[in-house]
Amino acid sequence: MTVEELESKIIELFVKNARLGYGAAGFCALYLIFGSGAQLLCNIIGVLYPAYISIHAIESSTKEDDTKWLIYWVTFGIFTVIEFFSGVLTSVIPFYWLLKCAFLIWCMLPTGLNGSNIIYAKLVRPYFLKHHESVDKFIDDGMKKAAGVLKRD
């Protein structure tokens, strides 16, 4: 089964069971606003489905689905690092966990214009192309210094 087939089956399941889907979405939204452990629920939603679909993508024979989910994980990782260093956001922004969850769902939508693709194309890729040579040199220099330190011992 391809990743596209799996994603379409999941969408079909929610469409057929619209009441169940809306109920689950409503419950999750309320829990993300009022529940304790909202951070855990948000991170489960942002990791569990993408991880499962990523495994399917790895096992498939096509490259397109691999690229799609690699772009998601790059976006997720950057967002997680930004969130870590601006931890005050979680207490200042009302409904933070609901907004983050909505953002992550937008990033994983099964369309070409999902959040991950837009963020990657408009922000990450241009920045990477501009700075990757100097970052690569910095990493190589660091590895050489580390190797030199290890050889001395």
Rank of each mutant, 00 (worst) to 15 (best):
I11Q: 07
K144W: 12
I53G: 02
C107Q: 00
R125W: 08
L6Q: 03
S61F: 14
A25C: 02
I11D: 04
L123P: 01
A25H: 00
H131I: 09
E59V: 08
T80I: 09
G35A: 07
Y72G: 02
D153P: 02
D140H: 10
E7W: 00
L113F: 11
L6W: 11
D66P: 02
K100P: 01
K68M: 11
I118G: 09
A57S: 11
E7L: 11
F34Q: 02
P110L: 01
H56A: 15
V74I: 15
A24D: 01
N117F: 06
V81Q: 07
P126G: 02
T111S: 08
D140Q: 13
C28W: 01
E4I: 12
L32A: 04
G87L: 04
F27K: 04
P50K: 01
L113N: 14
D140G: 07
L70G: 06
V81P: 09
V135G: 04
F103C: 15
K137Q: 15
G148E: 15
Y52I: 11
F76D: 05
F84D: 08
L30C: 12
D153I: 10
E83N: 09
V92N: 00
F138W: 14
C42W: 00
A24C: 06
K130H: 01
A29M: 08
V88C: 07
E5F: 09
S91R: 12
Y120I: 04
F85A: 05
C28S: 12
S134V: 11
Y120R: 13
K145G: 03
V124I: 15
I118C: 12
L89G: 03
K16N: 09
V15S: 08
I10P: 03
F95M: 13
H131P: 11
T2P: 01
E59C: 14
